[in-house]
Amino acid sequence: MLVMGASFVGFGSMLHALNWSVWEALYSSLSTWALPGQIAMADMAYSGAPLMAIVLSVAFINARLLPLAASLLPHIRQPGVQEWKYYTVSMLVAATSWVGTMRRLPDLAPDQRLSYLTGYGLLLYGSSLIATVIGFYLSGQVPQHITLALVFLNPLYFMLLFLFDLHNRSKVMALVFGAILGPMLFLIAPDWSLIITGLAGGTAAWALGQTKWGKKGLNRD
């Protein structure tokens, strides 16, 4: 939670550094609440990428929420609860809330699970909004040295997060392909570089992962 707070502080600082308003920063965290997509969105919009390229990139980056929601929500399903409640609470599904609730939910009584997820999710969600605003204003108040560090938080954070789990060969290949293709394609076709990097590098890595070599002696995740 501390790290998540710090990365929303970093996001607020980043938007301040890119001359967005505090309302736009807050609106993004409020409506999207999925940081990697928000960062890609701000970065691409700043460099003037086409709307379609931005939407596609964000859709892919945040598509990880689909399996998260699909695996978390069966735990809170029970008879008599209206369907719309699941769709509403799905807004609170994020990597952080998934990790935090997935372990606890099976131990709780079935009728308490929806409330638990809602409470847990809202706590993280609310903190992220406050962190975004703090980051934004902090960035305008502190010396430039500190602003630099704040804006640099997220690239560093994602870099280390990726290096945390290197057991799956196709994921490692995806990281390597992405790290090579990303900057290269940015020089050739900046507007579409991210989405092409993702599709080309990711598909190649996935295909390698389907081969014997990719599956050898490794867990799926």
Binding site: I61, G182, G202, W206
Partner: peptide, 10 residues
């Protein structure tokens, strides 16, 4: 895999 490649590039 697509997400990993895309974010690594970013």
């Amino acid at each position: 895999c697509v997400t990993y490649a895309l974010l690594a590039g970013l």
